[in-house]
Amino acid sequence: MSQISEDILIKKIRERDSSVMEIVYQKYALSLFGVIYNITGSKESSEELLQEVMLTIWQKIGTYDANKSRFYTWIVRIARNKSIDSRKTRAFKNEQKTQTHENIVSIVDNLKDNSFDSEYFDIVSFVEELNTKYLQVVKLLYFEGYSQAETADKLDIPLGTVKSRIRKALEILKKYLS
């Protein structure tokens, strides 16, 4: 059942078969939690938001268009938007504007804290290779939901550089995490 294809999962959600939500959860919950946690910085809030994200997936599946994005991209967008809204309501708004570097540090800290498979994962080499400039792009594009143009503007770099940096960042991620 866990090997069920993404297309089937989407189809069953559309058919209001709630049993598949557990499969979606098993498949994506930790990843979504990672996105939420790296935006809100609160594990308690992240747990609540994760449930809200699952509910939104269930309720809004009718708006998902496979021609416009991957399913994962769509659910990450839901998680990201909810997290950013939550962060704003919790008065983090002013801080996050000036603490890009601090947030990157917290991402790195989270990576370091997650030592359950450290035996197979050279976190030090990974973090060193994924230096700040690549992490910045990943953070803005992936966790903050910035567009390519907004990222270029935010970091004051050309559009093409955003592309090349995200490419490089993902190469590093693939190298260490695949």
Binding site: A29, L30, V35, L50, L55, I107, N114, F116, L170
Partner: peptide, 28 residues
């Protein structure tokens, strides 16, 4: 790319999947 991002997010979660709360099925 998607798998790499999923893995990255999972590792940046600060917890392992066994520490995740259970899905509240009453939501559905």
């Amino acid at each position: 790319i998607e798998l790499a991002l999923i893995s990255f997010s999972e590792k940046a979660a600060g917890i392992d999947k066994f520490n995740l709360p259970s899905l509240d099925n009453s939501l559905f």
